[in-house]
């Protein structure tokens, strides 16, 4: 019987591969990475005074004029990283349109009239986007500077210094990590 003949190798291979690819390899790889690259392997965590304040590559929410604001998140203002996701609203979605209109109004209210960078009024894919575009950061800079009583150019310089540029102009997009920017901002001596 054809099927019976195949039963032993089929079952054995499934079991063997499960043990090796599902157990041995991940265990060994995890141990190796924990030893070799512990910071990344554990989530690129940033600590302040011994306490975890978040991950360098996971977005968190900031409110108020004191800090640069991250992008809108489909997860809401909590930036709850125990989950992730996008709004999944379509291009002709009326609720998306309403949300965008409200965000545009809020953005121009907070940062003055002018062009509204698209990333500032649209939700990211993960809901945990740690970055904002350079244009967005530069638009926010004067308001942040004003709230912190810093010269605008200091904050603008800071933004420019913290910018990750697109490699060769094509890989990626000029952007700023919001958490890191705000951390550096906090570290600036008050004028």
């Amino acid at each position: 019987m054809l099927i019976l003949r195949e039963l032993r190798p089929a079952i054995s291979l499934v079991v063997l591969f499960t043990l090796i690819l599902g157990l041995a390899v991940p265990e060994a790889f995890t141990s190796a990475m924990q030893a070799a690259l512990p910071w990344q392997a554990n989530g690129s965590l940033i600590r302040q005074n011994g306490k975890i304040i978040g991950s360098a590559i996971i977005g968190q929410n900031f409110t108020g004029a004191n800090y640069f604001a991250p992008r809108p998140s489909a997860l809401g203002t909590s930036y709850d990283a125990s989950t992730s996701g996008a709004s999944n609203l379509g291009p002709t979605s009326a609720s998306l349109l309403t949300a965008v209109q409200q965000r545009v109004a809020a953005y121009t209210k907070a940062f003055g009239p002018g062009p509204v960078p698209a990333d500032a009024v649209t939700a990211s894919g993960s809901g945990l986007d740690p970055d904002i575009s350079l244009a967005n950061a530069l638009r926010q800079a004067p308001a942040v500077a004003a709230a912190r009583h810093l010269p605008t150019h200091t904050v603008v310089d800071l933004v420019n210094r913290m910018t990750h540029h697109a490699a060769f102009g094509i890989v990626g997009l000029d952007h700023v990590n919001v958490l890191r920017l705000n951390l550096v901002l906090d570290a600036l001596p008050a004028s």
Partner: peptide, 10 residues
């Protein structure tokens, strides 16, 4: 900017 809804800045 283009259509940024659901996309990541980086």
């Amino acid at each position: 900017g283009g259509n940024w809804e659901g996309k990541e800045v980086r």
